[in-house]
Amino acid sequence: MSAAIASMRTLIENDRIRLALLALSLVLVALGPFYLSAYWERVLIFVFFNIALASSWNVIGGIAGYPSFGHGVFFGMGAYTCAILIVRGGVPFPLAILGGGAVAGAFALLFIPLFRQRGFYFALSTLAAQFAIETVVRTWSFTRGLQSFDQGWNLPDLGSLDFFYWLTLGLLVACIGSIILMLRTRVGLALRAIHKDEVVAASVGIPCTRYKAIAFVFSAVWPGVMGAAYAPFLVFISSDNVFNISITLNMILIAIFGGIGTIIGPIIGGLLLSIIDRLSWAYLLQYHTLIYGLMIIAVISFRPAGIASWFKK
C-alpha cells in the first residue's frame, strides 16, 4: 500500500516537473522572435503548422482509430475560404480564420456516410474523396482553376513574420489545449472505447456514429483554421500547394512517427521530422525523400508506437 502511494507521489512530482518544463519551454518558444533569425523563425512557423495538423488528425486517426487519408482537404478548404473571403469580400483576417474553420467543419459533415466503413476501406474512401475534391477545386472557375493565367490566389500582406509566428503559436496552443479538454469529456472516453472495440462500445449504448462525427468535425475544424492562417502567410496559394496529397500524408506520418493516439506524439514527431527534413534538405538534397521514407519504415517496423514510447518505461 505504502509502495503504491509512494509511486503515486513520484508520479505527481513527475507531473509537476513536466508541467514546469512545459511552461518553461513554452515561454522560451514564445520569446522566439527576439533571438531567432528570420530563417529559423520561418522553420518554426512550419513546425507549428505541422504539429497542429498532425494533432488534429490524431483525434480521428489515432484516438478514434479511423485513419482518414483525406484530411488535407480541410486544410486546403480553410486556405481557399480565407483567400476567397479576403480577396473577393474584403473580410477582416480574424473573421476569415473563423470562416475557414467553419467551412471545413461544415464540409466534414458530408463525410459522415463514409463512417460505415472501417480500416482500409475507410482510408481508401477518404483518399478517393481527397482526389475527387482536389480535381473539382483545380477545374472550377469559382475557385480559379482551369485557366492558367488566373490559377490560384494572391493575398495582401497582412502582417510581419513575427505576427505570423505568434499567431500560429497561439493557434497551436489553442488547438492542443482544446484536444486535451475534449479528451477529458465523455467524447474522449467514447472515442477510446470505439477504438478498442466498436461492437462492444455500441452494445453498451454508446452512440458510435454521433461520437465519430463529433471527432471528425473537430479534427476537420482545426486544419481549416490552420489553413486559413496559412494562406496569407504563404501570400500565394493554389491547389498545388494547399490541396496536395503530401499535406495529408505529412499529418499521418508525423502523428505515427511521434506516437499515434497520444498528445505528446504529434509534438515530438512534428519537431523531429521537421528538423530532420530541414537538415536533409540542406545537406543531402538528392537523398532527402529517400531518408524520409526509410525513417518511416524503420519507426513502424521496429517502434510502431512511435518515438514517444521511448520516453515511457
Partner: peptide, 14 residues
C-alpha cells in the same frame, strides 16, 4: 491496418 498502409507507403516511397 493503418500501420500497414503507412509502412507499405514508406516502402513505396523508398
Amino acid at each position: 491496418p493503418l500501420m500497414i498502409l503507412v509502412q507499405t507507403f514508406g516502402v513505396a516511397v523508398v
